[in-house]
Design a protein around this nucleic acid. Structure first.
Lengths: 231, 231
DNA sequence: GCTCTTGTTGTACGACTGTATAGCAGCGCA
DNA sequence: TGCGCTGCTATACAGTCGTACAACAAGAGC
C-alpha cells in the first residue's frame, strides 16, 4: 500500500488566491444576489474554507469592494476596447460603444443584480464609495474622450464636454436598467438606436443646455440659463 | 390608589395596522437600507411586537411588496398631480412633470437606497415582480398620456408613443440615479434642462427611431428598423 | 359586569451571519 | 531528509434572522 497522500488543500500565492476569491464573490453575487455575500458561500464557491477570506481580506466588505473594482474596470475596458477596434471615425466609435453597452453579456439580469448590490453599499461603506467614485470617473472619462473626438468633426457645434458625458451616461444607464429589469420592454437594437438619435441630435445642436456659449453673456439673475450663442 | 390600569397595547383594525406596518417598513428601509428589512426592526419602528408582522402578513416579503406598491403609487400620484396642476398646455405639464421628478424629496439618497432594495428583490420574488410590472405600467402610462397630448400640438410630428415613453422613462431614471448616487454631479435644474432639451428635440423630429412613418416604404432588408405601420 | 372574539405578546426554535483564534499541514529550503 | 514559514482549516463565539405557537388581554357586545 503506497503512500497515496492526497493533500487536503493546495497553497497558493496571496495574489492568486485573492483573485480567485474575487472571482468567487462575483459568481456568488450573480447566483444569489445579496444573499450570496457570505463568507461561507463565497468560500464554498472558491473551494476554500470560510476563514480564509478573513485571512486575505480585513473584512468581507473589503472583498466586495475589490470585486466591485475588478468587475467595473473589466467592463469599462471591454466596452472601450470594442469601441476602439477598427480605426473608424469618432462617430463610428461611439456607435460601437453603444453596441457594446447593450451586448447580450451586458444585459444579463444576473449582472444587473450584482450591480444593485454594489450600488446599495455605496452610501454605507466608504470603501465602496471610493471604488465607485474612481470607476465612475474612468467611465465618464471614456465617454468624454469619445465625445471630445466628436467635437473635432466638421459641422458639430462646441458643447460642454463633462455635462454631455454625464447626460449620455445617464441615458445609457437608464436604458440598461430598463432592459435589465424588463427584458421584453425593448430590443438592444432599440436602445442603440435611441443613443444614436441622441448623439445625432447633439451634433445637430438640438440640446441648447449642453451647448458651449462662445461669449457667455455675463448677466446675473437669469431665469433659466444663458442661451447658447454658438452658431 | 385608583385603578390606573395602563393597557399594555392597543388594538387596531387590521387595515390600519397593516398601513402602519407598511409605513414602518418604509421608514426602516430609509434608515438602514437592506438591513432594515427585519421583523424585529420593523416591529420596533412601529412600536409593536415582531410577531405581529406574521399575523398580518403571510411573510415578510409580502409586507415588502405591499410597501413597494404603496411607495410607488404614492410617488406616481404625487408627480402626476404636480404636473396636472394649473391648466396649462401639454408642454408646460411635461416641464412640471420633470420638475417634480427632480424635487429635493425625490433626490433623497435614502429614497434611492429604498428603491435599490425593491429592485434587487424583483428577480427573486414573484410578488415583487408583480408589483413592479403594475406600477411601472402605471408610470409609463402617465408618460404616454402626457406625450400623447403633446402630439396634438401644432408642428409636432407623429411619433411612436410607447417607445417614446420608454425612452423618456429611461432618461428620467438615469438622471435620477446619477443625481442620487453622486449628488454633486449636477443640479436638479440641469436634469430638468436635459429633459426639456430631449422633449424639444422630440418635437423637432430629431429622433428618427421614434418617428412614425406616415407611408411606410415596404421594402425588406432595411438596415435599421422597419418603420412602424400603425396609424 | 361578564363573556367571547381576536389582536397582540413573548418565547422557543433551527439556521444563519462575520470575526477571532488555535492548531494543522503544504511545500520551499537547507 | 527534516526544519520552518505561513497559507489554511476548523472551531468557538455572540449575534441576528424568520417563523411558529401558546398564552395573554383589550375591548366590543350582551
Amino acid at each position: 500500500m503506497a503512500r497515496e497522500h492526497t493533500p487536503k488543500f493546495r497553497r497558493a500565492p496571496p495574489a492568486l488566491r485573492r483573485e480567485a476569491l474575487i472571482e468567487a464573490t462575483l459568481s456568488c453575487l450573480r447566483k444569489y444576489g445579496h444573499d450570496g455575500l457570505s463568507v461561507r458561500r463565497i468560500g464554498a464557491e472558491a473551494g476554500v474554507s470560510p476563514g480564509l477570506i478573513n485571512h486575505h481580506f480585513p473584512s468581507i466588505s473589503a472583498l466586495v469592494a475589490a470585486a466591485y473594482e475588478a468587475l467595473a474596470l473589466s467592463l469599462i475596458r471591454s466596452i472601450r476596447q470594442h469601441a476602439r477596434e477598427a480605426g473608424a471615425g469618432p462617430r463610428e466609435r461611439l456607435r460601437r460603444f453603444y453596441e457594446a453597452s447593450f451586448a447580450p453579456a451586458l444585459l444579463d439580469p444576473a449582472l444587473f443584480n450584482t450591480w444593485l448590490v454594489f450600488w446599495s453599499m455605496i452610501s454605507h461603506d466608504t470603501g465602496m464609495r471610493t471604488v465607485h467614485d474612481s470607476t465612475y470617473a474612468a467611465y465618464r472619462a471614456a465617454l468624454e474622450s469619445l465625445l471630445g473626438e466628436l467635437q473635432g468633426t466638421a459641422g458639430v457645434p462646441r458643447f460642454r464636454l463633462r455635462p454631455a458625458a454625464i447626460a449620455l451616461s445617464a441615458l445609457l444607464d437608464g436604458l440598461w436598467i430598463e432592459a435589465s429589469i424588463n427584458s421584453r420592454a425593448f430590443e438592444p437594437a432599440d436602445a442603440v438606436a435611441l443613443c444614436e438619435d441622441w448623439t445625432n441630435a447633439l451634433c445637430a445642436g438640438a440640446f441648447p443646455s449642453l451647448l458651449l456659449a462662445r461669449r457667455p453673456p455675463r448677466r446675473a439673475g437669469r431665469k433659466r440659463r444663458p442661451p447658447a450663442t454658438t452658431a
